[in-house]
Amino acid sequence: MVTTMDTALQEVLKPSDPTDRPKRMALVASKGGLDEVYPVLILASTAAAIGWEVGVFCTFYGLDIVNTKRNKKLKVSAVGNAASPPPMKSIEFRVPTILGILPGMNSVATWMMKSWMKKSKIPSFQEMMDLCLESGVNFYACATTLGVMSVKKEDVIPEASCLGATAFLDFAAGADVALFI
C-alpha cells in the first residue's frame, strides 16, 4: 500500500520531460542595417515554422527592427564593409571604399541590395516581419536601449514587449539555441 502511494507521489513530482516541450531559440539582434536584420528574420521565421518557440531581443541598433519610426527605412551601409559588392556582377570591380562617403551612397547600396532581393524573390523587410509575427515570434525591446536612444514606448510595434537583460537571460537560460547577431 505504502509502495503504491510512493509511486503515485513520484509520478506527480517527476520533472516534466524536457523533450516534451518545443525547442526554444533566443536571438539577440544588435544591428540595424537592412542586410544585418535579414539573418535575424530568416532564422526566426524558420524556427517558428518548424514549431520552435522564438524570442528576439532587440538591443541598440537592433531596436530599429521593432521601431516603427525607423523600420520602414532600414539601409545598407556603404562604408565600413570590406566585402561591399561590385556595382555589376559581370564586372570584377570593387567600389573604392572612399566613394562610400559620398552623399547618397547608403541609398545606392540599399537600392542595389533591395533590387537583388527582389530578383531572387526574397520577401521585403515588412513581409518577413509579418511572417515572423504571424508565426508567433516574440520580439523584445531592450529597455535600456529605449532609454539610451530616447525611443518612446509607443513607437515600438505593439507586438513587442519591453524587457531588461535579466528577463531575457531568464528566457535564454531555457533555450536550445542562442545566437548573437
Binding site: 530568416i42 521565421s45 524558420t46 515554422a49 518548424i50 514549431g51 531572387s120 524573390k121 526574397i122 520577401p123 511572417l131 508565426s135
Partner: peptide, 13 residues
C-alpha cells in the same frame, strides 16, 4: 524560384 526560408515556411503551413 523561392529561396530559404520561404519553402520551409510554406511547407509548414
Amino acid at each position: 524560384g523561392l529561396l530559404c526560408p520561404i519553402p520551409v515556411v510554406k511547407t509548414s503551413k
